[in-house]
């Protein structure tokens, strides 16, 4: 299951009427949106949106039936279990050699404010300005200890750039830390704090 699907299921289950709605679906052979709405004292649109969303997620079936000439949909459970099985490793960053050999250094006039950690051998946080004019806001990014050490050893603007792997070596960081360092570099490049030099 991907994150988006899990998030949709999660948000539907979080509705305060979700349990009542599922109780109706489990105990009734089939139910329409208006029947569910009157039973749970909901607006029909709320009931309809909820049931349609469950159909989209393949948890319910929706069958069109006719009362005289007026069509409506009756909903029934397609499954008696909802299993949210989310493989967290699907968002894991796998560092590739190219990323680790990226030559980086701090960008000149980045306007970032670095706060040195109390220990004096790493950066605790970086404050950057985002937006323009009156919408300009300060965004403070707190760094993890390995990220702080990486930033501490990052070459200065105009200094000779080093590869990510070289900086990590200088900072005494193992390869297992690479994903969080690469995540930081990506963020820092996005905000113009770090530049990659070919």
């Amino acid at each position: 299951m991907d994150f988006q699907t899990a998030a949709k299921i999660g948000s539907l289950l979080a509705k305060d009427y979700a349990e009542g709605m599922f109780a109706l679906l489990v105990n009734y052979q089939g139910i329409s949106a208006s029947e569910a709405a009157t039973r749970l004292n909901l607006h029909i649109k709320t009931s309809q949106d909820f049931l349609e969303a469950l159909v989209e997620l393949d948890i319910l079936t929706g069958t069109e039936v006719f009362e005289k000439k007026r069509p409506y949909i009756r909903y029934a459970l397609k499954t008696d279990r909802i299993v949210i099985d989310l493989d967290l490793m699907q968002v894991a960053r796998k560092p590739v050699v190219d990323e680790l050999s990226l030559r980086v250094r701090e960008k000149e006039n980045a306007g970032a404010r670095f706060t040195v950690a109390r220990s004096g051998d790493s950066i605790a946080s970086v404050a950057i300005w985002i937006g323009e004019g009156r919408d300009r806001q300060e965004r403070k990014i707190k760094l993890t200890p390995p990220q702080g050490r990486f930033f501490y050893h990052l070459p200065f603007p105009k200094a000779k750039p080093l590869t990510v792997a070289e900086i990590m070596h200088k900072a005494g960081l193992g390869e297992e830390i690479a994903p969080e360092i690469l995540d930081l570099i990506q963020l820092a490049m996005k905000y113009g704090v770090v530049e990659a030099i070919q």
Partner: peptide, 11 residues
């Protein structure tokens, strides 16, 4: 003389 000022400390 090529500037390159930063507020970070340098090891």
């Amino acid at each position: 003389a090529n500037n390159g000022y930063t507020s970070r400390p340098r090891p």
